[in-house]
Design a protein around this nucleic acid. Structure first.
Lengths: 160, 160
DNA sequence: TATTGACCTTCCAGTGAGTGGAACCATTAG
DNA sequence: CTAATGGTTCCACTCACTGGAAGGTCAATA
């Protein structure tokens, strides 16, 4: 099959499949016209990859999982190990996001959200949490200031 | 103060602060020797940015929040709007990760994790979930196969 | 004074996992 | 013949930095 066919079967964009070939995850044959020619096994692999990626596994994890999948003498412990590590990382992320969510929800709740400028959200972001109430600015000036004439900044303010 | 001082005050790496100047988030002065010279207000901005980033706001959000923070005539509704949108995105992510977690935890629990090759995790990844039991491969061959002699792959298997 | 060492500068390249687009080739239908 | 569709390569871009090279500056010490 051509790339469009495996794309439809696996649900992966053709671009992604080309990328997966580029990084060595699949190795389709080539037809005489230069088109990629995918076997059943390639389509199977791509579906496998799609599902592993949907579970959040990294490409490196996918590579290892694929290798284990194709190894008849694997120990399921190796697979479980990868999955458990991934599970831990997911739990960490959920915890991190949960903390963000709690703080943010609290601030959002406290903000009137009207025409007035008073805003607990900005107040919280602006508050000095660590140190330096009057940090004393003990840093000695190396020489006198002059306005930033060569700040060397590009892409000022617009994204990409 | 020099970059090291604001780095210590804000908790941001000097590299990050240079990057923030590059994208126009801060505009420190320059000393005669070419060193960046940060005012109190710059240090304050950087601390603000550090906290906003820690809450997961994107750089673009930070840019907008900074602008609102510096606008005495802002409406708190604008700030709340940004925060609520971010909160929604966080909730979506938590939900997504939660689904992954559930599936993965189920699979991990079902896997013996021993020396034997039988593995429900791999079985699940490999199972055909969508369509194509025998997908019939109706795709006509454009020409006969020949092994992949010009697959054009680079960085095969190693991370770059 | 020379030299260290900490600090600063710029610029370039890389991260993960693709995505968008240009320029071009192949196949097929009308 | 032409157009549409689908394939090819290659390059640049994303996001928010991070690492490192090559070199300039400054304060302190031998």
């Amino acid at each position: 099959m051509n790339i469009g066919d495996v794309a439809a079967l696996s649900g992966l964009p053709a671009k992604t499949i080309r990328y997966y070939e580029d990084i060595g995850l699949v190795k389709p044959l080539r037809s005489a016209n230069g088109y990629r020619s995918f076997r059943e096994s390639d389509a199977h692999k791509l579906a496998f990859l799609g599902r592993a990626r949907a579970l959040g596994f990294s490409i490196e994890d996918c590579r290892n999982l694929m290798a284990l999948y194709e190894d008849d003498h694997r120990a399921s412990a190796e697979v479980k190990d990868i999955a458990e590590h991934h599970l831990e990382r997911i739990d960490e992320k959920i915890a991190e996001l949960g903390e963000m969510r709690a703080t943010l929800a609290h601030l959002v709740h406290a903000c009137a959200g009207d025409h007035r400028p008073d805003c607990p959200i900005l107040a919280d972001l602006a508050k000095a949490s660590k140190n330096a109430p009057q940090p004393e600015t003990s840093t000695k000036q190396t020489s006198e200031q002059h306005p930033g004439q060569r700040p060397g900044q590009r892409r000022i303010g617009q994204r990409g």
